[in-house]
């Protein structure tokens, strides 16, 4: 993964997070689903706008991180801001029940197919 190059953006990550490097409170892990609770408002930080747009449907933190091209820890800080102002809600995915898991045979078939690709 190389997000750098001539297309890199000039703003540094500490300006994105306002100098913070750690999210307060551990409300988010990689698969926490984020749902936007409101529309982006003018004058908001562009990353917040993007998060609210992406999270109209439940979206995992790690997906937001990939879409924003920002490290997960930075996305967590941004999400903390949004959570504190009530613009998003976070949902922890439940572990799927045993019955919902795909059959081992199916998984094996997928694996074989992937190997053959």
């Amino acid at each position: 993964m190389s997000p750098l190059g001539p297309d890199d953006d000039p703003d540094r990550l500490y300006t994105v997070t306002g100098g913070r490097s750690r999210a307060t409170g551990g409300a988010f892990d990689l698969v926490t689903l984020i749902v936007a609770e409101c529309e982006p408002a003018p004058g908001m930080q562009s990353e917040h706008v993007r998060i609210l747009e992406l999270a109209r449907r439940p979206t995992a933190v790690v997906e937001l991180s990939a879409a924003l091209r920002l490290p997960v820890s930075v996305v967590r800080i941004l999400l903390t801001d949004l959570l504190d102002t009530g613009r998003i809600t976070a949902r922890h995915p439940r572990t799927p029940a045993r019955a919902e898991l795909p059959e081992p045979d199916l998984l094996k078939e997928v694996l074989d197919a992937l190997h053959r690709l």
């Binding site: 953006d9 703003d11 003018p42 908001m44 562009s46 990353e47 706008v49 993007r50 747009e53 091209r69």
Partner: peptide, 8 residues
């Protein structure tokens, strides 16, 4: 719209 698009 919001009058503001993504910064990137």
């Amino acid at each position: 719209g919001t009058g503001r698009t993504g910064g990137h």
